[in-house]
Design a protein around this nucleic acid. Structure first.
Lengths: 217, 217
DNA sequence: GGATAGCGGATAGTGCTGCTATCCATTCAG
DNA sequence: CTGAATGGATAGCAGCACTATCCGCTATCC
């Protein structure tokens, strides 16, 4: 398959494919002559993965390059690949030392030990959580920590479902890629579901028109 | 309070505050003389909200402007504000009609009716979900729909926790803003928790070093 | 065998986003 | 009275994900 057909089959323009190759997101085609290369199914699959991580997962090209490099590195142990993926999903780490930030970090440490989670307070996910909680506290929603355990219950439920899926579904050689897909796209899936459930719960609590309109008109 | 103090107290630079005002994210200060304005606590609070939605929620400035306009419009009923917020959180709607996309939409319709959710197939959240499921299917993970119900259980749990929190915590006049904060920042919170739970579940299943290393060394 | 479409490779440019820099005339604080 | 700060406006910048253009070559079709 040449680049034109690869482009047609994936809906990604030829210059964009070239760009991805340049950026190290996928290997170049195999040269059959000085200016002719052939691409295989692996390229097609990789391209779809890139588009999924970009469009659905909202990742940046540079971060995708890191994750894919980790996936391609067959020496790297699974948990390191996952660590690389998980670490790149979060926001930038703008370290602050507000009182809110400190309190949030303490709450996160508490949560981790209360849950008996094998995570570290210093992990990017924990840092993101602290930042989010600190932001809520600054907005007068410090009490949100009280529902953290409900959130954590749900998070554990999702994590169990993910692991079970990966465990039974994916062949071993694809496991790394499968887990990355599950981690990144699963987030998009859950996020949509949460918004849908939110609308539903709100409708059931307040009626379709919402509380503001109950005495209106 | 003048703009300099507002800047110092929030850590947002003066030109950036001016920029937010220009973009309609917050009202200008009250002019006390032709080139002197005073800002109040409402401005400070608004600025913190903007930074939270930007930095933690990952929203775009233009979308934040829309949401804040909805919040400020006291005529608008709660559910419309929430709709505006929820709709702006998703990705762009790149309509396609792959077989995968069609199948994914069918799966979503199924899910909604199975759950009895008061949502519509055409809502942005449902569209996002379809896109995510279609992307998974294209990557050979069509079987992911089998865990959708586990995800939905968790999503309902989170939505219930959110609603309960808002219901007991927030004064009525702040309810709209509170729900937006909960929706947007709650997503960041859950995302962090999911990644942490993921690491924990993985560690417990495979041991700290992951499966790849069990026979290494 | 000659036109033409496509190719690999490289460089420069584009549109969008979230600011940042600079300038100006005015005004407030010490 | 002087120097810092202010409101208002315009222009510029850095990062990102492409996109356009050009080059010399080659596979392909008639």
């Amino acid at each position: 398959m040449r680049i034109g057909e690869l482009s047609r089959r994936t809906g990604v323009s030829v210059p964009t494919i070239k760009y991805y190759v340049r950026e190290g997101l996928m290997p170049p085609g195999e040269l059959t002559s000085p200016n002719q290369a052939s691409y295989g199914e692996a390229h097609e699959r990789r391209l779809r993965l890139i588009r999924a991580l970009l469009d659905v997962g909202g990742m940046k090209v540079a971060d995708i390059a890191d994750v894919l490099a980790a996936i391609d590195d067959r020496e790297r142990p699974l948990h390191k690949v996952l660590g690389a993926a998980a670490d790149l999903l979060g926001g930038a780490n703008t370290e602050q030392d507000d009182p809110e930030e400190v309190a949030a970090r303490a709450a996160v440490t508490d949560l981790i030990s209360r849950r008996g989670w094998q995570t570290y307070e210093s992990s990017p996910a924990a840092a993101d959580l602290s930042r989010a909680l600190a932001a809520m506290a600054r907005l007068g929603h410090g009490a949100f920590v009280e529902v953290l355990d409900d959130y954590a219950d749900a998070a554990e439920e999702v994590a169990r479902a993910d692991l079970a899926y990966v465990d039974r579904q994916v062949a071993v050689e694809d496991m790394v890629e499968g887990v990355v897909i599950g981690t990144v796209l699963g987030e998009a899936v859950f996020s949509s579901l949460r918004r849908m459930a939110h609308v539903d719960a709100s409708a059931k609590l307040y009626g379709t028109d919402g509380p503001r309109e109950r005495k209106a008109k």
